[in-house]
């Protein structure tokens, strides 16, 4: 199997402001959000990141997506280093999270062209992609309606289509169903499944155990910035359920009773 993502010893420490420090009730202003995280993911596989809130999933994914720089360590995507070749990395990944939004003033049609432009696609390629994706997602019906007037589900479809306008090989989803109503969440899950069927590589973070068990080939469990377990789903889950396994590991690492 071809390795598509190789994460090596990524570290990221945030210097907290006084206010952030107070909010988190921390004495130390330095917060080690990602602590020496390594994992590999292979072509056509879905890699799931699991961890409680604040574990460092988003920070890890943002480093991989070149939105923030690691303090140390590196990751390569399709052989391109996030540190030294961020522009190539950006060409090869799609990044989707609910924190990144589409401008409400514009229509899906316009935004699709706009992002195609930012990705440097030719007019022809962009038109072809648009036709393809708009049909798949059923966006044609509302392609000329401003995003601000769209329902959550429609918006999500537009976001999904636009996040893969450049047909990336590897797609990173940070809690893609977080905060969505069930119908919209289903749109996202269906999309994930279809991407997997197309043989795309996916990195996914989510709280939803079922999704991880059904969809993922490999799972990494992050707690307090550290990768505490990382293997194929079968090896991690074994005879139990992912939920049980996760809470066992959580109790062991944090010594907390839950």
């Amino acid at each position: 199997m071809d390795e598509i993502l190789n994460v090596q010893n990524l570290c990221k420490t945030f210097k907290l402001s006084k206010k952030q420090q107070k909010l988190k009730n921390l004495k130390n202003p330095l917060l080690k959000a990602v602590d020496n995280v390594s994992f590999k993911s292979y072509e056509g596989e879905v890699f799931g990141l699991l961890g409680p809130n604040g574990a460092g999933k988003t920070t890890t994914m943002r480093m991989i997506a070149t939105l923030i720089n690691p303090d140390s360590g590196d990751a390569t995507i399709d052989g391109f280093s996030i540190r030294t070749e961020p522009a190539y990395v950006r060409q090869n990944i799609g990044f989707l999270t609910n924190e990144l939004k589409l401008d409400e003033y514009f229509t899906p049609n316009y935004l699709f062209d706009f992002f195609a432009d930012l990705h440097g696609l030719s007019k022809n390629t962009a038109a072809q992609r648009k036709e393809e994706l708009f049909t798949t997602f059923g966006i044609d019906n509302f392609a000329e309606v401003k995003v601000g007037s769209l329902s959550q589900g429609m918006r999500q479809k537009a976001s999904l289509a636009i996040s893969i306008v450049h047909d990336p090989n590897i797609i990173i989803f940070d809690e893609p169903t977080n905060g969505l109503d069930v119908i919209t969440a289903k749109v996202v899950v269906d999309f994930l499944v279809s991407l997997k069927e197309q043989g795309k590589s996916i990195i996914l973070s989510t709280h939803i155990f079922g999704l991880l068990e059904n969809l993922c080939d490999r799972i990494g469990i992050i707690i307090d910035g550290k990768m505490v377990a990382c293997d194929t789903v079968e090896k991690i889950v074994g005879e139990k359920t992912l939920e049980d396994v996760f809470f066992n590991i959580y109790r062991e690492t944090t010594k907390e009773d839950i």
Binding site: A65, L67, A87, Y88, R90, Q91, I93, F95, E99, L100, K101, L102, D103, E104, F115, L118, H119, G120, S163, H166
Partner: peptide, 16 residues
Amino acid sequence: GEKERGTLGSMLVTPA
């Protein structure tokens, strides 16, 4: 505004 609404981040994900 773009920063606040998260639309700037969407653009920064691209190789633009």
